[in-house]
């Protein structure tokens, strides 16, 4: 989508709403019981983005982003193509470092770590972040070796440790029962939905703190999508999840909080059920109801 072809869209309202926390719980309680687990409202911050700007060469792709993601919550990033949501996701595990001419200022903290501090071990940082991409990308290896890969890179050789990690990860990814009798077969022989869950298992094997998902279901049929969404619901007990999706229903179904981006700016962030029933910003309303542009 060429963003320059939409001149009629007004500039976004500069006031960016902060993620609701304990204070919001009070407001919501006056409106009825929210669908979101109350624990999500009180969750300590796991990922904190502060005054983040990102430039691809001279083009600014992210403008002063401030966003907090609570521990063991799911944050959905939504917005039209080119709005910066995937760019922001890649900032959280410093994958943008791999792109030429990228310049970033501002702060991103994961847990207590400022991940853009000069002394940060980027490889070590990425081990704390699991990443699942739009298209499943299993290695041309066995199912077992796909899941064990990250641990082997870390130098783990003990077979019992690897066996335990593979089983645990495949169980967490909801794939164990389907593949436990064929762990030595190629991961490429699985269905699309199974391959994506294999990739999730691979990400989980190294026990990440945060799981980043970039449109993980966009290539899957509704049944496989449903399984991944159920999985996300289960996984948030142990992980903090940030998911980019173009599917509004999916964002509504799986996330505790949703952030709406437009042209590199965070327009609105809030409780998912509030954002999808009564957004504060007109631009959010127009986008989620399909009247944008």
């Amino acid at each position: 989508m060429d963003l320059n072809e939409r001149p009629v869209i007004p500039e976004p309202v500069p006031t960016i709403t902060e993620p609701p926390r304990a204070g919001e719980a009070h407001i919501l309680s006056q409106q009825g019981t929210p669908l979101t687990d109350r624990a999500a409202l009180e969750a300590p911050t796991m990922v904190s983005v502060k005054d983040l700007n990102l430039f691809y060469g001279r083009k600014q792709a992210l403008h002063g982003i401030n966003l907090e993601v609570g521990k063991n919550t799911v944050m959905a990033l939504i917005g039209p193509s080119g709005c910066g949501k995937s760019t922001l996701l890649r900032c959280i595990n410093r994958m943008n470092d791999l792109i030429d001419n990228v310049r970033i200022d501002g702060h991103v903290r994961v847990g207590q770590s400022d991940i853009y501090a000069p002394d940060v071990d980027v490889i070590g940082l990425r081990m704390r972040m699991g990443m699942v991409f739009q298209k499943s990308n299993p290695f041309p290896k066995s199912i077992y070796e796909n899941v064990a890969y990250g641990l082997r890179v870390q130098g783990v050789k003990n077979r019992a440790v690897l066996d335990e990690a593979v089983e645990r990860s495949l169980i967490s990814a909801g794939l164990w029962d389907e593949v436990k009798d064929r762990l030595n077969e190629s991961g490429l022989g699985l269905s699309g939905g199974q391959q994506q869950r294999l990739c999730i298992a691979r990400a989980l094997a190294v026990k990440p703190e945060v799981l980043l998902m970039d449109e993980p279901c966009s290539a899957l049929d509704p049944l496989a999508t449903s399984r991944i969404e159920e999985l996300i619901f289960e996984l948030k007990r142990d992980f903090t999840i940030v998911i980019v999706t173009h599917n509004m229903q999916q964002a509504a179904r799986v996330s505790d909080f949703t952030a709406f981006f437009w042209m590199g700016k965070l327009i609105e962030v809030g409780l998912t059920e509030k954002l999808f029933t009564n957004p504060r910003e007109r631009m959010t309303e127009d986008y989620i109801s399909g009247r944008f542009g």
Partner: peptide, 9 residues
């Protein structure tokens, strides 16, 4: 139509 926001309301 799976509506959201004011349409849903």
């Amino acid at each position: 139509r799976a509506p959201f926001a004011s349409d849903l309301r």
